[in-house]
Design a binder for these strands. Sequence first.
DNA 1: CAGTATCCCAGAGGATACTG
DNA 2: CAGTATCCTCTGGGATACTG
Lengths: 123, 123
Amino acid sequence: MSEPLDPMMFSGCGPVPLHIRFGNKWTGKILACLKTGRRRFSELQVPLRGITPKVLAESLRGLERDGFIKRTTYPGVPLRVEYELTPLGFSLLEPMEAWCKWAEEHLPEVQNIHEEATARSAV
Amino acid sequence: MSEPLDPMMFSGCGPVPLHIRFGNKWTGKILACLKTGRRRFSELQVPLRGITPKVLAESLRGLERDGFIKRTTYPGVPLRVEYELTPLGFSLLEPMEAWCKWAEEHLPEVQNIHEEATARSAV
DNA sequence: CAGTATCCCAGAGGATACTG
DNA sequence: CAGTATCCTCTGGGATACTG
């Protein structure tokens, strides 16, 4: 508890380490899309340009199973389903913002390094 | 800039989004092992239980290429090589600690949810 | 000591088509 | 509308063995 960032902490973040659970292409974006309120399946597909229905459905199932979002169905035709963040899901926004803050502060530096590396390998 | 966590930010985190760059099995652990000082290749293999030399070498080269660590060789026999965090590498510890903080605060809740899900699927 | 060289596999995720 | 069903590819990462 006194030593944050002990290597062991990374393997202690639940059944799947936290940074791996969210270290994929869509999970973080889905949560970000839900932070302003409930959204329907098709409403999520718009901002998440390029996601296929299969992958979106799989991702949503996983987030629901882990308690990060809640799924509500409204019977009727046409079918209506809405997804929203749970309090636990909202709490994830904080660590996610830490990454964004880092990116804002260090992105120019990172890009310089990347350009230099590209230039070197082009020689 | 006014809207942190805009979905677009995730795709703007460098050539590879930040959360994906560090959303793998070893990268974060390697940085954590280096936060207390320089380490040799074989010294890293000890805390990183189970990592193969191939994967460790690949990971270190990637971190070096991206400017997060610095590699120093000391000629002689036997060969001596040391790795250390750069200032940029150190700066990553902050967002990584945000994940650990989240885990500390929410892990019990996450585990409850996981156990309930396991119990449900066992019915 | 500090790595390379091969081979291999599971799973994330895309393309496409179909359905209650 | 809100998904499923198939099929396929690509790559992170492991096992094992070898080298300057």
